[in-house]
């Protein structure tokens, strides 16, 4: 391609009036060496554009892992809430059993105390009876 033509295209290029085809022409001219010295800066630009386009995304695109991760969290929370419910239930049962035991002990202690005191009273009444009997005997 002759230089005059390239210069015209470059002018259009700066004004963003070139078509994609014309830009390809420019790209070819400037990346294939032997550039006119007064157009050197375009060679830098087009070389840069070409090299940067060679850069690719090398990692594989993962579509699934995040999804399953999220599901795991969901199940984890469900499991945690079940465990919590269960432990609260068990704890409540244990607590009730303990309360009942305590109550039972208190009641039985009270009853024992009552029966002891009752025995004491009975003895006293028994002595009273013997006393009354002897008094009656003497008075007769």
């Amino acid at each position: 391609m002759e230089l005059a033509n390239i210069e015209k295209l470059v002018e259009k290029y700066l004004n963003a009036e070139t078509t994609l085809q014309e830009e390809t022409t420019l790209k070819n001219y400037f990346t294939e060496g032997s550039v006119a010295p007064h157009l050197q800066e375009y060679a830098y630009m087009f070389t840069y554009f070409a090299t940067i386009k060679a850069e690719v995304y090398t990692k594989t695109i993962a579509l699934e892992p995040k999804k399953s991760k999220r599901r795991n969290y969901k199940w984890l929370s469900v499991a945690a809430s079940i465990v919590l419910l269960f432990s609260v239930f068990i704890g409540k049962q244990e607590y009730e059993r303990y309360q009942a035991l305590k109550q039972f002990e208190q009641i039985s202690k009270g009853l024992r105390l009552l029966s002891q005191n009752l025995k004491k009273g009975e003895q006293a009444v028994a002595t009273l009876y013997t006393y009354e009997n002897t008094v009656n005997k003497i008075l007769k």
Partner: peptide
Amino acid sequence: RVALSRARKTIREELIKKHNY
């Protein structure tokens, strides 16, 4: 087009400035 033209011109001018052509 205006933005593109501006960008291209800026790059070119800066390059020229850097190299003192």
